[in-house]
C-alpha cells in the first residue's frame, strides 16, 4: 500500500517516560481479532489509559502528532496493529533512544517516522513536553533534524526508508521493478534441492 508522504512535521509531543514499551501495551491482543486495517486508535495503550493520570488522558496533549518515549520502544510482537493504532490515533513520528527491529520496519510501512536520539536528549525532550505540554517539536526528515526551541539535533536514518517516507512510495511497486531478477533467482533455485519443498506431503 502507498503510504502518506512525510517531509516535515511540527507538533506538540506526548512524553512517555518509560523504557521497553511493548506492543502488547501499545495494543493488546484482544483487539486484534478484526480483519480490518483501520480503527485501532481507540485501543491505543488500552490498559494504560484506564489510569486517569496517564498522559494520553491529559487534554493538553490532544492532537499531538509526536511521541517521545524511553528505550526499546515497540519490543515484542510483530503485530502491525501497533503502528496502525498509533497512526490511527494521529501519531506520525516517534522519538526514542532505541526501537525494536520489527516495529521499526512496520512503522515505515505505515508512514510513521522513527527517530533515534541520544538518551540524554530524549530525556530533555520528555522533560520539556512534561513541563510545557504545548511546546512544539519539529521533525524534519528532509534535513534529518529535530528542532525544539533553539536546539537542533541531527539524526541518522536509513536512506532507503527516508526516500520511501519522503515520497510515500509503495514497497511492492518498487520490488516489482525487479521481476526479471526474481524470476532468474527462481530458475537458479529450482536447480538445487536447498530450500525446495516436497509438496507431495
Amino acid at each position: 500500500m502507498a503510504i502518506e508522504a512525510f517531509k516535515s512535521l511540527t507538533s506538540a509531543a506526548i512524553p512517555l517516560d518509560r523504557p521497553d514499551i511493548d506492543t502488547d501495551q501499545i495494543i493488546p491482543a484482544q483487539y486484534m481479532k478484526r480483519i480490518e486495517r483501520s480503527g485501532y486508535g481507540r485501543y491505543l495503550f488500552d490498559a494504560l489509559r484506564r489510569d486517569p493520570d496517564f498522559v494520553l488522558n491529559d487534554a493538553r496533549y490532544e492532537g499531538a502528532k509526536i511521541l517521545v518515549a524511553g528505550r526499546n520502544f515497540g519490543c515484542g510482537s510483530s503485530r502491525e496493529h501497533a503502528p496502525w493504532a498509533l497512526e490511527d490515533y494521529g501519531i506520525r513520528a516517534i522519538i526514542a533512544p532505541s526501537f525494536a527491529d520489527i516495529f521499526r520496519n512496520n512503522c515505515v510501512n505505515v508512514g510513521i517516522v522513527t527517530i533515534v536520539l541520544e538518551e540524554d536528549t530524549v530525556k530533555e525532550l520528555i522533560e520539556r513536553s512534561t513541563t510545557e505540554p504545548a511546546a512544539e517539536i519539529t521533525v524534519d526528515l528532509e534535513r534529518c533534524e529535530v528542532r525544539a526551541g533553539d536546539d537542533v539535533w541531527t539524526f541518522e536514518v536509513d536512506a532507503f526508508h527516508r526516500e520511501r517516507l519522503l515520497k510515500g512510495l509503495d514497497h511492492i511497486d518498487l520490488t516489482l521493478q525487479y521481476e526479471d531478477a526474481i524470476a532468474a533467482h527462481e530458475r537458479r533455485r529450482a536447480r538445487n534441492h536447498l530450500g525446495s519443498l516436497n509438496h507431495h506431503g
Binding site: 500500500m1 486495517r37 510482537s77 510483530s78 503485530r79 502491525e80 503502528p83 520489527i102 520496519n105 512496520n106 510501512n109 505505515v110 514497497h171 511492492i172 520490488t175
Partner: peptide, 10 residues
C-alpha cells in the same frame, strides 16, 4: 524471522 502485515503482503 517475524514480519509485519505489510511485509506479509510484500
Amino acid at each position: 524471522f517475524g514480519i509485519g502485515t505489510s511485509e506479509v503482503e510484500h
